[in-house]
């Protein structure tokens, strides 16, 4: 795992340092110590512990028995897990494809010179992520309700069809994606906007003088210089998407007919509803391998040939 996982780090071309002798070999480690003092017990140990649980049968309140790969073979053969993984992949793709460009457009719009109320807009876009999911669920219930919901009232008003937002298995995943995008798009936009702030405005001015149009400036200045932050947003949003749980749990419980059952929901059910910690942990480890593999592919793809 370590070898594979090593890749996403080369997100940005490494800075060539010629004068390694300028600092002591111990310096970097000293900077790392405070973080790892915390991370080793609370991050590394707990993750390793979780992976280890995947190899045991943990009888709650009883013995812990090593069972080898038994949990893994069970989970891999479980058709429900396959469905959950497939749903997760589909929703992940739909989500990323909608979310990232939208967040980028908002960030660029926010960065437009001579814009008034810039901060107000940011605050407004940031609001959804700050709202308690309990309340969000309540609001979206009212929004998505088939008979009395606001959305269908609007659709009926413009002469459209009534849509079964959460009841139709082919629509429900999209309703969940829409909710999720609504919750986080402003937040990622604010992060991207902060990234745009580090791009010196002189670059744009110089480009404008050279006659570069908006698209050219976006392609040749914004995109490359924002790439480190964009990569962060893509990786963070992707991992969150892979671990999609709260929204479908709250709105659909994975239904109807398992159409919104996600991998983490499967893990949750195994561990916390069925008290089967081993199978839950095994499923989590399998999901982690999938996440790491796809993230590496993503990063490779995004880096393209621009590196150098």
């Amino acid at each position: 795992m370590a070898r594979v996982a090593a890749s996403p780090i080369a997100l940005v071309p490494p800075v060539r340092t010629r004068k390694r002798t300028l600092y002591s070999a111990w310096t970097p480690y000293l900077f790392l110590v405070p973080f790892f003092v915390i991370f080793i017990p609370f991050g590394a140990a707990t993750v390793l512990g979780a992976v280890a649980i995947g190899f045991v049968y943990w009888e709650i309140g009883g013995d812990i028995e090593f069972v080898g790969l038994q949990n893994f073979t069970f989970v891999l053969r479980d058709s429900v897990f396959q469905i959950a993984l497939w749903n997760t992949l589909r929703m992940f793709l739909g989500y990323i494809v909608i979310l990232v460009p939208l967040a980028m457009v908002i960030a660029v719009a926010l960065n437009r010179p001579n814009l008034a109320c810039r901060r107000t807009f940011q605050v407004v876009y940031f609001l959804p992520i700050t709202m308690s999911l309990i309340v969000v669920a309540m609001v979206f219930d009212l929004l998505y309700d088939e008979r009395a919901g606001v959305l269908n009232a609007f659709l009926t008003w413009i002469g459209g069809p009534r849509i079964r937002w959460l009841e139709d298995p082919s629509v429900a995943p999209w309703s969940i994606i829409a909710l999720r995008v609504w919750r986080v798009v402003g937040y990622y936009a604010v992060i991207l906007y902060a990234g745009l702030q580090s791009i010196p405005s002189e670059l744009y001015e110089a480009a404008a003088i050279d006659g570069a149009n908006g698209l050219q400036r976006f392609r040749h200045i914004t995109l490359p210089l924002l790439r480190p932050v964009t990569l962060f947003v893509i990786v963070a949003a992707s991992i969150a998407a892979w671990e999609l749980f709260a929204e479908p749990y709250v709105l659909t419980e994975g239904g109807p007919a398992r159409s919104t059952l996600t991998a983490v929901m499967y893990i949750y059910r195994q561990a916390f509803l069925s008290f089967d910690l081993g199978r839950g942990a095994a499923a989590a480890a399998i999901l982690a391998v999938a996440i790491i593999a796809v993230t590496i592919l993503q990063v490779r793809f995004l880096r393209g040939d621009h590196d150098a």
Partner: peptide, 23 residues
């Protein structure tokens, strides 16, 4: 350095729910 950082990122791939008991 790169391996260590990769491992840090990889730790994000394990959902919170399963690290809860070890935590």
């Amino acid at each position: 350095r790169d391996v260590l950082f990769g491992l840090l990122l990889a730790s994000l791939a394990i959902p919170d729910y399963v690290t809860l008991i070890p935590s």
